[in-house]
Design a protein around this nucleic acid. Structure first.
Lengths: 215, 215
DNA sequence: TGATTCGTTAACAAAATTGTTAAACAAAAA
DNA sequence: TTTTTGTTTAACAATTTTGTTAACGAATCA
């Protein structure tokens, strides 16, 4: 009994994630979600009260998960370039599973601006702050051109996330199948690194690999 | 009479653009659009038959306009780096007016994949093809590291568009007002150029300025 | 002036979507 | 076995959103 309860609730959430974050179908109705999950629509209300509350739960859980991962990378004591390589690797891999997650956040943020403010207020430290010292050291050592931590983080996010967000557009323009696009994105990890650092991406060292496992 | 007709139709379209492309409020109902425009909701049906047809018109017109601008830049015989500088300048400026335009395209594309395919089939030549020769020359001359035209164009789009798409998120994270964010984006033009070329952005020469006027 | 056309409006109708409830059902506890 | 608890379902109700229509009014033209 107890097992079934979690099963159905999880099933609904996972199905909604697929529709919203994988297929980018943000306008999916409760009926469509229920159909896709093969459950009665009333169960969505039974477990989540309302459609909006379900979205809130989903948003909260998924943002939290993504943020935790990213934070745990930026907080390590890895060398700067290895740290960023791991960041790219992680974000792109996560994005391969949920390409439209950022899109969902963007839309929900535009609809209910207060929602996102709550998340931000939880973080005392901005992620750009976490890399400031290391970034400045790189710039001083002339391994990087001058750039603010904010702009560096935005560049990094942009290069990683945009090709995911624009999945449908880019796939259509370049006539790629889902598999071809996957492959393209995996190979693009190195392009992103080279764009930021103007040198080849280092292999993840033992320490970085270890961290990657324990995300 | 004839003037009024165009006026109202334009008013509705402009209002919808503001809601969709400026405010990112993609779930705006016909009632909300009508209210915002200060017209009777039935007029939306009078001019556009249905909500969906209005969106189609809007999408078509706006994509076409943006694409024409971008194409006309890539098709000039400007020096490569000046051309890209002008591209950045143009796309960011357009994005300052309509930050969520890309977002709208992404969502509509995910909802109705066929829609976007129609647009792409109109173009015989991909925009990445338009810069291929010049890009290869730059790489050969060692002014740029090796990169495919596709990845170069995606980098360019990503760096220009992502900060617009994520406007709400980034503004919240960094606690910027609308004006501060505007200013930040204008200054970021140079950051984008430096990220791609690892040198200062050139001033637009007379020829480029002329093209910029005639967009 | 009278007829016509077009834009506009309010009221209505239809459809789609969400939310509620009572009853059926199954599993576990008494 | 009976009771209780939690899950599932179908049917219903409420709300929201879209789409339609008939009537009104203003400008245009015969």
């Amino acid at each position: 009994m107890g097992a079934d309860e979690v099963q159905t609730e999880e099933l609904i959430k996972e199905t909604a994630k697929i529709l919203f974050f994988q297929k980018g179908f943000l306008s999916a109705t409760t009926q469509q979600i229920a159909d896709e999950a093969g459950v009665n629509r009333a169960l969505i209300h039974y477990y989540f009260r309302s459609r909006k509350l379900m979205l809130d739960t989903l948003l909260e859980e998924t943002i939290q998960e993504k943020k935790d991962r990213v934070r745990s990378i930026l907080n390590t004591d890895l060398e700067f370039n290895v740290k960023i390589a791991l960041y790219i690797d992680t974000v792109v891999d996560l994005g391969l599973k949920y390409p439209y997650l950022e899109n969902f956040i963007i839309n929900e943020t535009a609809r209910y601006p207060e929602k996102f403010k709550v998340f931000c207020s939880k973080d005392r430290v901005k992620s750009s702050h976490l890399i400031r010292e290391q970034l400045e050291a790189e710039i001083k050592a002339k391994r990087l051109g001058p750039i603010s931590p904010e702009n560096f983080m935005i560049n990094l996010s942009a290069l990683c996330n945009y090709p995911l967000l624009a999945k449908g557009i880019l796939q259509t323009i370049h006539g790629m199948s889902d598999n071809e696009y996957r492959k393209f994105l995996v190979e693009r990890k190195q392009v992103i690194y080279r764009t930021l650092f103007h040198e080849e991406m280092p292999h993840l060292n033992a320490k970085a690999e270890l961290i990657k496992q324990n995300l």
